[in-house]
């Protein structure tokens, strides 16, 4: 049992974080012209990981096998860690005295910038895994490109996150293959999940003025340039999984990036933000 002094040690994590933030100088962070787009884009990165992490964390204690339960919690944990980094930088860029927590817990749905794909309900494990796979494949190629970002701070976050996301993609690809080529039932469920999610996958590659601005500044890649690599990853895995890529359009459902969401996001926020909303200004 830890002794009392041990338990009253001040929070070293916060100290370490502020020390790390002071480390690398990055002119983009103070660039006034770039600020609105850069802030928005950082929220997109952080909101994707926050909302998907939230969804995946809903599985905790309810997974289909103990190993899977652990892996899902681990993935959610990684994504929440990425959120702290992306939204932390977003708050810095915004420079209005807000924190990553303020952004996560005190914005309403209209201000959330995640892809609609991330907020869809978990469904069964087939939907959860297929959603992870489609997102992981994008996330992996995105972060790989971001490690070469003109913004050192972005490149630094991307490099840290990429290690974990490479593993996420490896794991979700592997499971898509095994379940796609498993039993008749697992195959049918995976195909159904793919058909359902496919129309949400295109949003990842549809650029708007925000994406153009950060691409022009050399901070992020041109989204359309990521598409072929994503397509290749996805097609290879689907082929091995004996699954069929849907014929229909991939970009049917869009708008999350601009703050137009599905009905589901409101419920996520109602749950996630409950304590911060019910007890304004309290510290936890």
């Amino acid at each position: 049992m830890p002794s009392l002094p041990d338990m009253t040690t001040p929070d070293v994590v916060a100290l370490a974080e502020s020390a790390a933030a002071a480390q690398s100088h990055d002119p983009h962070v103070q660039d006034v012209d770039l600020k609105p787009a850069f802030f928005d884009w950082l929220c997109r990165m952080g909101d994707n990981t926050l909302i998907l992490g939230h969804r995946i964390s809903e599985w905790c204690g309810h997974g289909p096998a103990l190993e899977e339960d652990i892996a899902l919690a681990n993935t959610a944990l990684d994504l929440i860690g990425h959120t702290q980094m992306w939204l932390g930088l977003a708050a810095e860029v915004q420079s209005e005295g807000r924190t990553a927590d303020d952004l996560a817990f005190l914005r309403d749905a209209m201000k959330f910038r995640n892809l609609q794909l991330a907020e869809l309900p978990n469904g069964d494990m087939a939907v959860t895994l297929m959603r992870e796979f489609l997102f992981d494949a994008w996330h992996f190629h995105m972060l790989t490109a971001l490690t070469r970002s003109a913004s050192p701070r972005v490149a630094e976050i991307a490099a840290k996150a990429l290690k974990e996301v490479s593993y996420h993609l490896e794991r979700s690809s592997d499971l898509v293959v095994r379940l796609g080529d498993g039993t008749q039932e697992s195959h049918a469920r995976m195909q159904e999940a793919l058909d359902r999610l496919w129309p949400y996958s295109g949003e990842m590659f549809v650029a708007d003025a925000v994406d153009d601005a950060v691409a022009n500044a050399g901070i992020a890649p041109v989204l359309a340039d990521l598409q072929p690599a994503w397509q290749q990853t996805v097609e290879e895995v689907l082929a091995e999984a004996t699954l069929t890529r849907p014929e229909g359009r991939a970009d049917v459902h869009r708008g999350g990036k601009q703050g137009r969401h599905t009905e589901h996001l409101g419920y996520i926020l109602a749950q996630m933000q409950f304590l911060q909303r019910a007890y304004p200004g309290a510290s936890w």
């Binding site: 289909p64 096998a65 494990m125 095994r178 379940l179 080529d181 498993g182 039993t183 039932e185 697992s186």
Partner: peptide, 12 residues
Amino acid sequence: NGQWFRDGLSAY
């Protein structure tokens, strides 16, 4: 609910 998942993996 995880039965099909575990069956799928062992079939593979």
